[in-house]
């Protein structure tokens, strides 16, 4: 059930025409369709049928696994697909009628964070888990190839240290949220990480924001700290955010505690974090 909530649609971005991507040579023999005609026939079928047809024969298997075919198929079937996590260590790629097209394994302990730009972003958001000792992690996964790329999220210290009574106390984030976006003007992929810290003793929450510029081949270059917004995003691991046009939108924290603490009437419902300018904007109460 939770998986349905997490579902974020994305569409495979394919612009090339099927004709231009055609690579299969014609090999005619009596009564057998040439492979380039088979290409045209199979491209009409839904994705699930195609996978089933890989068991027909070797040429059909290599044809339907060919990137040119996959591109042509995506161009022919431009309906957006949905990614949902319904089980541990696995996400489902589904069509809009809920039919499962593909199951993509994800690394252990990871939770689906975001699917955008044809990629899936998963992260281990719960660092408080005592029974596993690896720290925070984040992966980008290409559902088409199942290739995953681990982003180094422990390369810097974002422990939060404050003076507490007569001693300094340092905290690890209680959990982190990740979102993948692209700067439209440059096409550069960026990952936003929101780390949430909870000071139980102080009854106070803090958040830190970092943006990673992702290299084309995968793997990060460098996380940059970015200014914290005036308002906190909702401190909830289910508040995964939505990426739209280079900005990530999170539901704002609307708990009474924060509203009171800010002593303001214009507490926002949504906080928008721009991946390009790394700036933070708020959308005031326009949603009801």
């Amino acid at each position: 059930m939770d998986g349905e909530k997490e579902a974020i649609s994305f569409s495979w971005s394919v612009m090339e025409s099927r004709r231009n991507t055609r690579v299969v040579a014609t090999a005619t023999s009596h009564g057998v369709l040439p492979l380039d005609v088979v290409f045209d026939v199979l491209v009409c079928l839904p994705a699930k049928d195609i996978c089933r047809l890989r068991a027909i024969c070797r040429p059909w298997r290599s044809l339907t696994s060919d990137p040119a075919f996959i591109k042509a198929h995506a161009a022919r079937h431009p309906e957006p697909l949905i990614v949902a996590q319904r089980k541990r260590d696995l996400v489902h790629v589904m069509d809009l009628s809920g039919g499962v097209i593909k199951r993509v394994p994800i690394p252990r302990w990871q939770t689906l964070m975001c699917s955008h730009l044809g990629l899936i972003c998963v992260g281990d958001c719960d660092t408080s888990r005592s029974y596993h000792d690896t720290s925070r992690s984040c992966y980008l996964i290409d559902p088409a190839t199942k290739v995953s790329c681990r982003l180094d999220v422990n390369c810097f210290e974002d422990r939060l240290c404050t003076s507490y009574g007569d001693h300094d106390e340092c905290l690890d984030p209680a959990f982190s949220l990740f979102a993948l976006g692209r700067v439209d003007s440059t096409g550069v992929y960026k990952v936003l990480m929101v780390s949430c810290f909870t000071y139980a003793e102080l009854n106070e929450d803090q958040q830190s924001y970092h943006v990673l510029t992702v290299n084309g081949a995968g793997g990060g270059t460098r996380w940059r700290s970015t200014a914290s917004p005036e308002f906190l995003i909702g401190m909830d691991t289910m508040n995964r955010g939505v990426v739209l046009g280079g900005a990530v939108y999170y539901l704002a924290d609307d708990s009474e505690f924060h509203t009171q603490a800010l002593q303001t009437d214009n507490t926002p419902d949504l906080i928008a974090l721009s991946t390009s300018r790394q700036s933070i904007g708020v959308l005031s109460r326009s949603l009801s």
Binding site: G31, V32, L33, V38, R52, L53, A55, I56, C57, R58, W60
Partner: peptide, 15 residues
């Protein structure tokens, strides 16, 4: 079924 498709398309199962 895969077998029926092989028949329709005159395909030899080479697996």
């Amino acid at each position: 079924s895969p077998d029926q498709i092989r028949e329709v398309f005159n395909i030899k199962n080479d697996y």
